[in-house]
C-alpha cells in the first residue's frame, strides 16, 4: 500500500438535541492509505455517515466536535475554515451521499449539475465541461445520455438518480472518494458495473476509497480493509480476509450470521436494538445484545486487543483470562477457511 493520506485520531462528535447531547461518535480512529479501499460497515445509526461527513466538513448545524483530529496531507481538516473546505470538497475529497434525492438540485438539468464541479474547481469552460459530463454519464451506464443530459432529476428512476450522483462525485477525479451506500439503490447488474467503474478509476488515478455499506457481499468484493462500527465506535478492524474469515467481535459474528445467501433458509437476526446514544453504556456497547457477554462487558469498555499486525478487536473475549467459547457455526466454518489459508500461505 501507498503513503498514508488520511489519519483520523480520537474523533468525538456530539449532536445537540432538545432531549440532550447525542454522543454519536465516541473516540474513532482510523487511517487511509493511497490507492486502498477501506470499507466501513456497521449497524444503522452507528455513526458511519457522521464520521465521513466530518471528513468533508459537512456536519449538521447541531453537531459539535468534542475532540480529535483528521490529518490530511499534514493538516487538520477540523481546523480549516468553510472557505478552505470548499476548495477541497468535490475536488480532492468527493462524497457520494446516501440519499440521492437530497444531493441533487431538482430545478437544474442533470448535465449542468455534473459539469459544475469541473467549472468551479478546474476552470474548465462550460462547453468542455458539458462534454465531459456526457462522457461520465455514459460511463455510469445511463442510456441515451445525449438526450437525458438535458433532463431534470425527477425524470429518472431511483437507481438512475444514484448514478447521476456518482457521476458528479467522479467527474473531478478526486484523491479520496467517500461512497456512502453508493449502490444500495441499484440492482445487482448496475451495481457490478458501478463497482467495476470505481475499481478502474482507482487503478487509473490511485484514488483512495472509503466505502460505506451494509452489504457484506459488496464489501467482500471491494475492500482491502474493513472497519466495523457499533454505537459510535469502531469495534473491530482488519484486512478483508481477517474480518470475513477470522472475525473476533461477537457483533461482527452477528453481522456475518444475519446475511442471507442464495442458499440460506432462515435468517439469524441480532435481537434487540443498539443503545441510545443520549446515554451510551459505559462498558462494551454491544453487551446488552451479546449472548457471550461477561460481567466485565457491562462495567468496562474493552481495549483493542491485537489479533495480528493488521487486525484489532475491542472485545473482552480476547483477554487472556476470558473463558473459551465456541462461536456460531457459520463463524466456525469461516475460521476453518482462514486456518486453511494460513496453512497454504506458510
Amino acid at each position: 500500500m501507498g503513503e498514508r493520506i488520511l489519519d483520523v485520531k480520537n474523533l468525538q462528535i456530539d449532536f445537540h438535541t432538545y432531549a440532550g447531547e447525542v454522543k454519536a461518535i465516541r473516540n474513532v480512529s482510523f487511517h487511509l492509505d493511497k490507492g486502498e479501499t477501506l470499507a466501513i460497515v456497521g449497524e444503522s445509526g452507528s455513526g458511519k455517515s457522521v464520521t465521513t461527513k466530518s471528513l468533508m466538513g459537512l456536519l449538521a448545524n447541531n453537531a459539535k466536535i468534542v475532540g480529535g483530529s483528521i490529518m490530511y496531507h499534514g493538516e487538520d481538516i477540523l481546523k480549516k475554515s468553510e472557505k478552505q473546505m470548499q476548495n477541497i470538497r468535490g475536488k480532492d475529497i468527493a462524497m457520494i451521499f446516501q440519499d440521492p434525492m437530497t444531493s441533487l438540485d431538482p430545478t437544474m438539468k442533470i448535465g449542468r449539475q455534473i459539469a459544475e464541479p469541473l467549472m468551479k474547481h478546474k476552470n474548465v469552460e462550460k462547453k468542455k465541461a458539458l462534454a465531459q459530463a456526457l462522457e461520465i454519464l455514459k460511463l455510469v451506464g445511463i442510456d441515451h445520455a445525449e438526450k437525458r443530459i438535458n433532463e431534470y432529476p425527477h425524470q429518472f428512476s431511483g437507481g438512475q438518480r444514484q448514478r447521476i450522483v456518482i457521476a458528479i462525485a467522479l467527474v473531478c477525479y478526486p484523491e479520496i472518494l467517500i461512497a456512502d451506500e453508493p449502490t444500495t439503490a441499484l440492482d445487482v447488474t448496475i451495481q457490478a458495473q458501478i463497482l467495476d467503474l470505481m475499481k478502474e478509476l482507482q487503478q487509473k488515478i490511485e484514488t483512495s476509497i472509503i466505502f460505506i455499506t451494509h452489504d457484506l457481499g459488496v464489501v467482500a468484493g471491494m475492500a482491502d480493509r474493513v472497519a466495523v462500527m457499533y454505537a459510535g465506535q469502531i469495534i473491530e478492524y482488519g484486512s478483508v480476509d481477517e474480518i470475513f474469515y477470522n472475525p473476533q467481535h461477537p457483533y461482527t459474528w452477528g453481522l456475518l450470521n444475519s446475511m442471507p445467501t442464495l442458499s440460506s433458509t432462515d435468517l439469524e437476526a441480532i435481537p434487540g436494538t443498539p443503545p441510545d446514544l443520549l446515554d451510551p453504556p459505559k462498558g462494551d456497547p454491544f453487551a446488552a445484545r451479546n449472548p457471550y457477554a461477561m460481567k466485565i462487558d457491562a462495567e468496562e469498555k474493552p481495549p483493542f486487543f491485537k489479533v495480528s499486525d493488521t487486525h484489532f478487536a475491542s472485545t473482552w473475549l480476547l483477554h487472556p483470562d476470558a473463558p473459551k467459547i465456541t462461536p456460531p457455526d457459520e463463524i466456525v466454518r469461516r475460521q476453518a477457511i482462514f486456518a486453511k489459508m494460513q496453512a497454504n500461505a506458510n
Binding site: 447488474t189 457490478a192 452489504d215 457481499g217 467482500a220 470475513f244 456475518l256 446475511m259
Partner: peptide, 23 residues
C-alpha cells in the same frame, strides 16, 4: 440467469474468482 450471477456473496475468495454471466 445474468441477474443471479451478479449477486454479491459475503465471501472474499468467492468474489475474487466470481464469473458473471453477461446478458
Amino acid at each position: 440467469k445474468s441477474l443471479i450471477s451478479a449477486v454479491p456473496e459475503p465471501d472474499p475468495e468467492f468474489e475474487r474468482t466470481r464469473k458473471r454471466v453477461p446478458y
